[in-house]
Amino acid sequence: MTISKHERRLVTAVWLVGILAFWEIMAFILKYVVKSEMASVKLPFLHTIFITMFQNAGMLLEASAVTFSRALLGFAIGAVIGVVLAILMSLSKTLERIAFPYLIISQMIPVLGLAPIIFNIVRDMNLSRIIIAAYITFFPVSVNMLSGLKSVDQEKKELLYAIAASKFNVYRKLMLPYAMPYLFTGLKIAAPMAVTASILVDMLGSKSGIGVKMLYSLYSSSMDIFWASVITSAILGIVSYYLVINAEHFFLPWQSGKEGETA
């Protein structure tokens, strides 16, 4: 049987408290034992960061909203492109052979280099964020979706073949639903990456967004704000991941049930 909900919560709680305690202890050692003069820069106390976050909540939320909403839009666009590409490649072996090398190459261009290029072309910060987030998203989505479409059991297909189902119906009733868990695997990988990409674009000279806060605070040596922005960014990534997990539980109830059985 699977571990109970109660136990799972306990594990999470212990884990979280452990990390918080570790951080605080290390910060304490750095400041009072090692007596590092840069202690508050290298590793400030976690509670001071939280206090800063709380004091600047409005500013941080606003900046997060800018970055996160663009990331989300780019993520959605990238996901759609990824799914469509996967379906096309599963329909035509030739198309797969033509397209796949391009897909691989596209992932070899570092986003750090691509982002300024895109920005120079479109000259719009929001659009750049969206494009880069989409660019980051489409690849894991496409590859995972395609592997899902390709791993449908022969017998499941024969069941439909035996009653002369149309290709459209084979995709609608079998291939697409079958590939859904694979799609979600791709989405889970892509979501935090899309957020990171959006933050990266912030840093290219945007006026708003959480990446900007991070960069400016670093230059102006306001370390409290810097650390608060970093933690906020991390939270954005985690939130994006859990949004996908929740969507998966909602849309694929049989999947979470199965995992519960075998775990």
Binding site: D153, E155, K156, E158, L159, L160, A162, I163, A164, A165, N169, K173, L174, P177, Y178, M180, L252, W254, Q255, K258
Partner: peptide, 30 residues
């Protein structure tokens, strides 16, 4: 093509994402 075969395989070959009712329903939808 006239859809006059009913086939039962060695394995149940059910679609995981469909409930029992909807699995039985599948060929009828087609």
């Amino acid at each position: 093509i006239k859809q006059e075969y009913g086939i039962v395989f060695q394995q149940p070959v059910l679609y995981d994402w469909r409930t029992v009712r909807r699995n039985i329903c599948l060929p009828m939808e087609i």
